[in-house]
Design a protein around this nucleic acid. Structure first.
Lengths: 193, 193
DNA sequence: AAAAGTTCGTGACATAGGTCACGGTCATTT
DNA sequence: AAATGACCGTGACCTATGTCACGAACTTTT
């Protein structure tokens, strides 16, 4: 159950076996079936989640009822609504399993404890968040300077198998267009080249 | 020269006077006059910058020659191209002073030293980056779900005096529209309400 | 196997925002 | 004081993308 977490953490920091054994006691394993929700908007996001297996998505529903995907959570990724997790405020996001998934949950109090008692974890999460910030900044600049087609290609490059694993309308809502626009774009790409 | 830095840091963490005195030795004070560049794209971003006074902007120029502003750096803010700073790769961003500014620069080696030797700074930067990530995620979702007018109003709300301090075309390139669109939007707002 | 829901394509049309071009004002430089 | 360049508004037109509507294929449920 903890294999992937250990592997991922060891990619960035060095921790002793005892430290990892301690960390393990703070996580709550959970299986989540496809189409089930881990978080509904309006509720506070009380866990940060590590994806051991499966696939999650976090998304927002805007005033007009349109979905916008913030993140796909593949194996080895962390998923949460950070703001709600840190403040306890109601979340504006939903988190849903797109495949049967195996998750490791950690609550805010446990997370605080972990970061405080094992400084290597503070270091680990700093780097994790840092990389996430870089990626999010890139995506932001991409939405401002690239066409839908360029954003689509960039997504396929980053997540080569995502197009096979999730429905097209979710890909559309990740790159920030309607499903119709993506559909036309794809048929152009198929014929054009 | 270090008043604002100390104030800002004390807002999030508790550090002793000795720790701050040590930190001070790692920063390089620099005055940068209006329109001067701290970083040109193509060069590596060798400093992370704290704005003691003045105003910076970091921006990218895309393939078509259009500018896109990633960040306005007001007093008390940190500015850098994080990716380039961390990896040493050439930056795709420019950093320019929009007003005569007083800055505190820290190099990557000094920054690493600081975070390693004073754990409170690791904690401080984790929280800083975390808040930055939350803000960037919000801006990303905003560009996908809001109109140009909504994004403009949101910017004015967040930085009430920015409209007086920077030219309109930079505000346009921050919210992701052309200067013409912003100009029309503003004249609508002026007449409409 | 039938029914219901989900996914995807596509046509007709609407619209927000981009592009190009011009002119006027103001600040900065010489 | 003249000249140059930055800044901003605005008209005419263009284009990418959104909206609405319909139908077909496929999947899941009963």
């Amino acid at each position: 159950m903890f294999e992937f977490l250990q592997k991922k953490i060891n990619e960035t920091i060095n921790i002793s076996d005892e430290e990892f054994e301690y960390a393990k006691t703070l996580f709550i394993p959970k299986k989540l079936r496809k189409k089930r929700f881990l978080l509904h908007d309006g509720d506070p996001c009380i866990y940060t989640t590590f994806v051991e297996k499966g696939l999650l998505r976090s998304f927002r529903i805007d005033d007009k009822g349109n979905e916008h995907i913030l993140q796909f959570g593949l194996q080895g990724w962390w998923v949460a609504d950070l703001y709600s997790f840190l403040t306890g405020e109601p979340s504006e996001y939903n988190i849903e399993a797109l495949e049967d998934s195996e998750l490791l949950l950690i609550t805010k109090p446990s997370w605080d404890k972990l970061l405080h008692e094992v400084p290597a974890f503070e270091h680990y999460f700093r780097i994790l968040i840092q990389n996430n910030l870089i990626a999010t900044q890139r995506r932001l600049m991409g939405t401002m300077s690239s066409t839908a087609e360029e954003r689509y290609n960039k997504l396929l490059q980053e997540f080569p198998d995502i197009a096979q694993r999730v429905p097209q309308h979710m890909i559309a809502s990740y790159i920030g267009v309607t499903r119709e626009t993506l559909s036309r774009l794809r048929s152009q790409l198929a014929s054009g080249s």
